[in-house]
Amino acid sequence: MLLRTRPAIRSSEITDKKLYLRRREFIQAAAVTAVGAAAGTLGVPQADAAPSWPRVKVPNFAKSPYGADEKPNAYQDATTYNNFYEFGVEKEDPSNNAGPLKTKPWTVKVDGLVDKPADYQLEDFIKPYALEERIYRMRCVERWSMVIPWIGFPLASLLKTVQPAPTAKFVEFTTLFNPQQMPGQRRDVLRWPYVEGLRLDEAMHPLAILAVGLYGEYLPNQNGAPIRLVVPWKYGFKGIKSIVRIRLTDRQPMNSWQLSAPSEYGFYSNVNPSVDHPRWSQARERRIGEFFMRPTLVFNGYGDQVASLYAGMDLKKNY
């Protein structure tokens, strides 16, 4: 009897075992390449390897006990996910568009109801104060949050230097207006320049700082260089960036977001889980980098220090 011994499949057609075992990898790679090519033609932004802005270390600053228990977000998060409408309304706009902002020389005007009004060069403005690092939680009104190691000095130190008049009750801050360097200002998304304000006792609170750096380096432009406000118990938009003017006044300043949508944003804007934004609940927040949302804490967790500022006030009315 004749047995047919020729195999049904020629050996040349048999896939090499090693290749066969890697077939999934291959298909995956092919898919990634195909999609990648498609994405490339659609102009999808690639993940940036190195930042395009200068990174300069702050030579001298002290560590402080603030926030030692918190784990800061990635540097990339804090420097590429920004609300800074002066450079565009998308989160990636500031890091993409803020490069041309000239922060040297920079003048800060201090005026209004103060005994010592002056126009300061930034270097002279900062020089008298010891810089320290403060690791603060930052809660955005849009329901996300980060932990950021700021470098700065207490706003109170500055106010003590310039000596508010006895009639002064509020501090008003103003951002640079320069549509040439701040392309977002070419459209009336908000009324420019951006204005923020604090009650004088809030401004004197030791937690409120003027920041000049983060993560051990001077502020990148997209984070509000060269100097910005950080008030950790309030929603992030109170932290006005690229400040050119600090004015003491006896009238409550009209801050930009209140002017834009008074039913949604108030003057105080203290972080408060029990006061909803009209369009979303503020009870929880997504810490950038996490999936599950955390419960939002009243005064962003700084209630022990700041709640006394608002004793007897209706925080639902004064949102």
């Binding site: 690639q46 993940a47 980098g289």
Partner: peptide, 17 residues
Amino acid sequence: LVLIWRAFNAALGANPL
């Protein structure tokens, strides 16, 4: 497919969801 590709290449920004 572009979204999936971006997800696998960490190109969705700091708040991918």
